[in-house]
Design a protein around this nucleic acid. Structure first.
Lengths: 214, 214
DNA sequence: GGGAACCCCAGGGATCACCCTGATCCAGTG
DNA sequence: CACTGGATCAGGGTGATCCCTGGGGTTCCC
């Protein structure tokens, strides 16, 4: 079995080469950037490509985009994505393709190297190898249920000021309402963000974190 | 040469084992978390330890802290830190020690595996192996002016947990101290971050914001 | 030896944040 | 018209947070 590897972290690239060769595969080329990956895939037409997403020069989704382009030119080229993140945009496109094996594993969730070697083989044979977390994120309706979108305009204003580190008194002064009104909004914010009272949780901070992650 | 490796990413851990063994070293143990690392270091007293910083269970600086503790119990134990980040706080403490080889490399800046193998050997022989970027960040005057860099290790731990949205009680339980001790640290954090009491400011949120902006 | 820094702990007190209950007014909708 | 949701406000209560004061121990440095 002939493999092309794309991984910019030298230590991991070396390790992957050693691992796959130790399992009887031939790594015909190992590259560290998008353009080299495309050239290697078109040149070698490997049995499978193991591709990191965030490659130079962009360090964003170069690996994914290159894989899609290569499969456009070599229909059915088996590709196993190995990444730290779920990159939604191009992942859907790659995984929706009908032809050829595809896989998407998260580096940090590969707990056993035999699992990884199996995945490489399965994809090369035309199968799939999906990390459940990737599946979950791609299929989740979560984007549409964004907790912050449940807030009224006023609640959102209050949360914005909370996230600036203002006290409730300062927020009341700013919005020309009483403390009681702010209290009420804050309670509603916690409710709508799904933050129940708990001994362990400082809910104000959690609400601010939710706001900052939007 | 006998080596202990601490790295939680399975693929990289496997790769490091293969790489070092291919260069004539014996990997006597490879672990994936802080407590196992300490046990392995005390048990094996290796010629060198190759240590990732962010290990479970905390995923913050467990590797560094464990290395420091191991060197306290085994003076001069050579340690090569291999990390994605420059963790200022404990790095200074580790690198300031007089005895034994130490090194600090950044994973993404190891462009050549031979360079890495050389570094392992040099540290085992009592020398140093420093990534220039690490040196730059540790020696830069900016670090000293960073409010967060004024915090002690413990204060930084407390702030990290505050930034997760934990109550003081939860932080106390987590760190196995009383509420009073946490209260004190929180007060010191506000002082060192230059956050005076004010009618308008929720200082806890401001401290968390300062932390998140680092 | 003495001082500084750090970590830990306690008693005690003030206040801010959160929450319960109840109420009013307004706009939109069926 | 009745209902719902949103905004606002009030009285009252609890407790988490912050802070003051004081103390102990350890390590390091002058």
């Amino acid at each position: 079995m002939r493999v092309v590897i794309a991984e910019d972290l030298a230590l991991l690239r070396d390790g992957l080469i050693r691992l796959l060769e130790a399992h009887g595969m031939q790594v015909v080329e190992a590259v560290d950037n998008g353009p080299s990956l495309l050239r290697a895939l078109l040149t070698h037409r490997p049995d499978v490509a193991v591709v990191d997403v965030r490659l130079p020069p962009d360090h964003t989704d170069e690996g994914l985009r290159t894989a899609i382009e290569a499969r456009r030119q070599v229909p059915g080229l088996p590709v196993l994505i190995l990444s730290q993140y779920v990159e939604q945009l191009y992942a859907r496109e790659l995984l929706a393709a009908q032809e050829g094996g595809v896989g998407y594993l998260l580096k940090e969730r590969v707990s056993d190297v035999a699992q990884f070697v199996d995945a490489v083989r399965r994809v090369a044979d035309g199968g799939t190898a999906m990390d459940p977390e990737v599946v979950h994120q791609l299929l989740s309706k979560r984007a549409h249920d964004e907790p912050l979108s449940r807030l009224t305009a006023r609640e959102h204003e209050v949360l914005t000021l909370m996230a600036e580190g203002r006290t409730n008194a300062a927020i009341a002064a700013r919005l020309s309402v009483t403390l009681k009104a702010v209290d009420k909004h804050v309670g509603n914010i916690f409710l709508k963000l799904g933050l129940p009272a708990s001994e362990d949780d400082n809910r104000r901070v959690l609400a601010v974190l939710a706001y900052l992650e939007k």
